[in-house]
Each structure stands twice: as structure tokens, then as C-alpha cells.
Simulated assay, not measured.
Amino acid sequence: MPTSPGRLSPPSAITVESPARLHLGFIDPNASLGRSFGSVGLAIDAHSTCLTVRHAPAAAHHGRIDGRIDGGIDGAASVAQRERIEQHLAALHAAFGAGPALDIELHHTPRAHTGLGSGTQLALALGTAFARVRGLDASSADIARVLSRGLRSGIGIHGFDHGGLIVDGGRAAGTLLPPLIARQDFPEAWRVLLIDDTSREGLHGDDEKRGLASLAPFPAYLAAHLSHLVLMRILPAVAERDFAPFADALCDLQQTIGEYFAPVQGGVFASPAVACAIEAVAAEQKAGIGQTSWGPVGFAFVESAQDAERALAAARRVAPGASLNYTIAAARNRGATWRAAAPGQRGADAA
């Protein structure tokens, strides 16, 4: 793993902003045709992760990580998120060696366990900022390996680097991270309505592992069908900016993979309220509908900003519950960004 300092002196504070992603579906969840998983996903311009890492003042060593003094963590949304950051810092210190104490400031992150890839984006943003303020030459793949990301899907890692529509090649024996096999700019005019049921969380951790282990083998003919959908329908439709075949193929992919995961998550959608709202959109206009990862966030792709407003109105009419949050987003055709931040000025560096 490269760890040599860069030629230029590293900045003392770095702000990193990384995109959320939609996981649009697995292609072969349990290697019925040879490689496991394989993912399709899209980086979006909403629900990003933004944080700043800076050298801590010498007199402001607030906590300890694995027996060594480190700086403080401000802005964590929960105790669990703070603990996750502490664990990541411990792993980064172990992999890259001791260095100056660091302060971490979170400006904003998506709600955890909703299908937006918040865990991977937090890890990669933190690791990237850590490496840059330390003057280390570490790639996103290096950081992902240190922090145990990309064990099934590579969408979050490749989306962090490149943005846009991503297809990864899944895992085979000896594969460390799912390889990037296709990346396309997504049409700027197309929009996606996101609906989050804030009363729920998607499967994660040990529950996710048990859920995956409980599923029946994925039929080879369905893996072949999904492969065809991705290669011959979704990717060409995006390349040609042809919305209707994209929407039809995405609905087909989502229905197929959703039915496979339904025994674990309680249906094709994890949230009945989200399902009701998303299906109302599809009843009124052409839309590519589904759920990102384990949800509960559902999505409806539409062809324009005007169509997105119509979709939002339709969803709200049938599912006005207080637990539902709505966002209209576009694709993000670039990866994470970073910039030097002012040292010692907390709260002033959010992107």
C-alpha cells in the first residue's frame, strides 16, 4: 500500500465532500454464473457527506484511540456514528502509522441505513482527508481495504472516485474489490424522486449477513436476464439519452431482484408507505421505480424537472404521512471533491 509523503507539504486542514449513491440492483447475488453480486448504481447530487479533518491544537487532545492521544470529533449525528469514526481512525493509524493528533468535524451526512451508502462515503471521505493532511499517497481502493468497505458492492467506491452511472463486476475468488467495468455520464435533464420512510431503517450489520445467508440460491437464468438488462438495455438507453427503455429496464431489474429479497425485507419494498407513494407515481407517468439497496428509500426516475414535480405531487396525494421525507435529485457526474480548509476555524468550511 503506498504511504510515501507527497512532494508538496500537505495542508493542515482538508474538507472532503462525497456523493450519496443509489444502489439500483445486484446482477448475480450468489455467483450462480461465476461471480457474486455485481452492482449497478448512480451517484446523486443530494444527501452528500461533508467533513473536515485538521491538525488538532497541541493543547486540545480530547480523547484516546487505541491507547494514543487524538483530537476531538464534532457534529456526529449519533453515538454509533461517533464510534464508527473512532474505529476508522484506529484502523487508519494502524495502517499508516502514528502522526499528529487530528480534529474531525462533520458538516452533514445522510441518515444512516437508508440505502444511500452513508457508511462507505463516511469511511472514504474520512480516509481521504486523513491521507491528505498526512501527506500520504493512498487511493480510494487502499482506504476501502483498510476500512473494510466494498465487501459486496463497489458502487460506493467507484462513485466516490468518478460519479455517474456505475457498473461493477462483482467478486470472484481472490477479488479484493469489485472492479469497475462500466461508467457513463447520466443525462443531466433526468431527475429522481427519493422517498425516505424515517420510521424505518434498512437491514445492516449482522441482520444483513443473516438475511443474505437465509436466501435460496439465485437462479442462473435470472442472473443471465439481469446481465442482459444491464448490458443491452440500461447502458445503451443511458448512452442514447432514451428515457423510456431505461425506465422499463430498471423496473424489470428492480422487480426481479426485489422479489428475490422479499422474504428477508418483507416485500419488494421494505416500507409499504414508500411502495404506495412510488407506485402512485408510476401510475401517472413513465417512471423507473424501485428501492435503493435495503431501503427504506425508494426512487422514481423521471425524464425532466417538470415531471419530477408532478411525481412529487402524486406521491404526496396518496402517502401524506409524517414519516415520509421527499427529495428531488439529479445525477452527479463527478466524484468526491476536496479542498484545503482554514485551520482552526470550526463550522466555517462546509461545502
Results as ranks from 00 to 15, higher is better:
9 S>E: 01
12 S>V: 05
13 A>E: 15
22 L>Y: 09
24 L>P: 02
26 F>T: 04
30 N>S: 08
32 S>D: 05
35 R>E: 15
35 R>P: 07
36 S>I: 12
38 G>V: 03
44 I>W: 13
46 A>H: 10
54 R>P: 11
58 A>Y: 06
62 H>C: 12
70 D>R: 10
77 A>Y: 03
81 Q>T: 07
82 R>D: 12
87 Q>Y: 00
89 L>F: 11
89 L>V: 13
90 A>Y: 04
90 A>L: 07
96 F>L: 07
99 G>F: 08
99 G>W: 07
102 L>A: 10
106 L>G: 04
109 T>G: 03
112 A>R: 13
112 A>E: 09
112 A>D: 10
113 H>W: 04
118 S>M: 03
120 T>D: 09
123 A>G: 01
124 L>M: 06
134 R>W: 11
137 D>A: 15
139 S>R: 07
139 S>L: 14
141 A>D: 10
144 A>R: 07
146 V>Y: 04
148 S>G: 00
149 R>I: 00
158 H>G: 05
159 G>I: 00
161 D>T: 04
164 G>T: 13
171 R>C: 08
171 R>A: 09
180 L>E: 13
181 I>Y: 04
183 R>V: 01
185 D>F: 03
192 V>L: 06
193 L>V: 05
201 E>K: 11
202 G>Y: 03
203 L>C: 07
206 D>F: 14
206 D>N: 13
207 D>E: 12
207 D>N: 14
209 K>M: 11
212 L>N: 06
213 A>T: 04
217 P>A: 08
220 A>C: 01
222 L>N: 10
225 H>A: 15
230 V>Q: 09
235 L>P: 09
248 D>Q: 12
249 A>W: 05
252 D>K: 14
257 I>Y: 03
259 E>A: 11
262 A>N: 13
268 V>N: 04
283 A>E: 03
287 A>M: 08
289 I>G: 03
293 S>I: 13
297 V>A: 09
298 G>C: 10
299 F>S: 06
301 F>H: 09
306 Q>P: 07
307 D>K: 02
309 E>A: 00
316 R>Q: 03
324 L>M: 06
327 T>I: 02
329 A>D: 10
330 A>S: 15
331 A>G: 05
340 A>D: 11
341 A>V: 02
342 A>T: 11
343 P>H: 09
348 A>I: 15
